[in-house]
């Protein structure tokens, strides 16, 4: 059974591992150089020159940086569509279930070996990719702009053990779809659609609630961290946008509250002066405006998940996806019996 599984799986396995191996090799070759550049940057400006780091280090590598994030994000989709969906679906499609399930091996054992071996390959592929990409991207993660810290969804999804959870889920989802639909192509389509939906919905609606968000309220008296105004479509000012959370935090909410602690519906029209000025001359005006806001009791309130929760959230989400994967696998074992 192991031989047969390997014989059937080796083509699609070599395709995926071939690409991943080539990428890993390229990273291994270019990585040391990147680290040398990073060390030089650190000695040059001792972690103080944010602008310099961004302009001369992060920005020149931004293409490769996002390319690798995309690669890691796409991996579960590829696993689900090309390893998962054909696993059982193709047997039905080509009629070979009439051949292989008539050998002296029960369907459940057949499935156990198939899911077991392809599952191990999935975990290996995900682990290899994450380790290689995270190592290479580390200097860039360290110099990325605040909006791209590793708690933000697109980076979070491409770092750490959660990628293994996503991939295992994709594999079992594809297998279950193939078992239900009995054809490869529709199973691939369903797998793709469900995976994309889940990978968008989970960071949006589930991940923020894995723990109670932290909340911070502060009066804004200086313009240092004011990023702009939160404008409604009709031009009313709903509040300020202030970069208030601790560094590396995942910002969930950023709103201006009035003296009674309620969220502002609309700030007075004069608050337009609090916007970052076009020229340095306008800074005094902005400063005045901010002080007037503070004097009238307006404060800025932010909700966020701090950077320290990265591994906690990674663990939570991996466990959730592992449980769902086990449920899908269990469904396959139940549904595969003759019917």
């Amino acid at each position: 059974m192991i031989w047969l599984t390997w014989r059937q799986f080796r083509a699609s396995a070599s395709a995926v591992f071939g690409v991943l191996g080539a990428v890993a090799l390229a990273l291994a070759i270019t990585g040391p150089n990147l680290y040398r550049e990073y060390d030089a940057l650190l000695t040059r400006c001792a972690r103080t020159c944010i602008g310099d780091a961004y302009d001369h280090f992060f920005f020149p590598h931004v293409g490769a940086y996002f390319g690798l994030i995309l690669l890691v994000t796409v991996l579960p989709v590829v696993v689900g569509m090309f390893w998962g969906a054909p696993l059982i679906g193709r047997e039905f499609e080509t009629g070979t279930h009439d051949l292989v399930w008539q050998q002296s091996v029960s369907r459940r054992r057949w499935l156990a070996v198939k899911l077991g071996l392809v599952g191990l390959a999935t975990i290996a592929a995900a682990a290899l990719t994450v380790v290689a990409v995270s190592w290479w991207s580390h200097p860039l993660d360290a110099t990325a702009i605040t909006g791209l810290n590793r708690m933000t969804p697109i980076v979070f999804d491409a770092r750490g053990i959660v990628v293994i959870g996503h991939s295992a889920f994709a594999l079992t989802l594809g297998a279950a779809a193939g078992l239900l639909l009995r054809r490869t192509l529709p199973a691939m389509a369903v797998t793709f659609a469900v995976l994309v939906a889940v990978l968008i919905l989970v960071p949006t609606f589930v991940r923020p609630h894995l723990a109670a968000p932290e909340r911070l309220e502060s009066a804004i008296t200086t313009n240092e961290r004011v990023g702009g105004l939160d404008l409604a479509e009709d031009g009313t000012i709903r509040g300020l946008l202030v970069d208030l959370g601790p560094p590396g935090a995942w910002m969930l909410g950023n709103e201006t509250v009035d003296a009674t602690g309620h969220a502002v519906v609309a700030l007075p029209a004069w608050a337009a002066g609090c916007a970052p000025p076009d020229s340095p001359m306008g800074e005094a005006v902005q400063q005045q405006c901010l002080q007037r806001l503070a004097a009238e009791g307006y404060r800025q309130s932010v909700t966020y998940h701090p950077a320290e929760r990265f591994w906690l959230f990674q663990a939570y989400e991996t466990v959730i996806f592992a449980i769902v994967s086990l449920l899908l696998a269990w469904f396959c074992f139940v549904w595969i019996r003759p019917r």
Binding site: M1, W3, L4, R7, Q8, A11, T94, G95, T96, H97, D98, L99, V100, Q102, Q103, S104, V105, S106
Partner: peptide, 29 residues
Amino acid sequence: LSRVGYVAQSTPVYSRLTVEEHLMLGDRL
């Protein structure tokens, strides 16, 4: 299962496997 041999109407085989590999499949299973 080992006591019953079955040839389905469509006589399915694995198109990517060689004839010899089908016999290896039979041997191993």
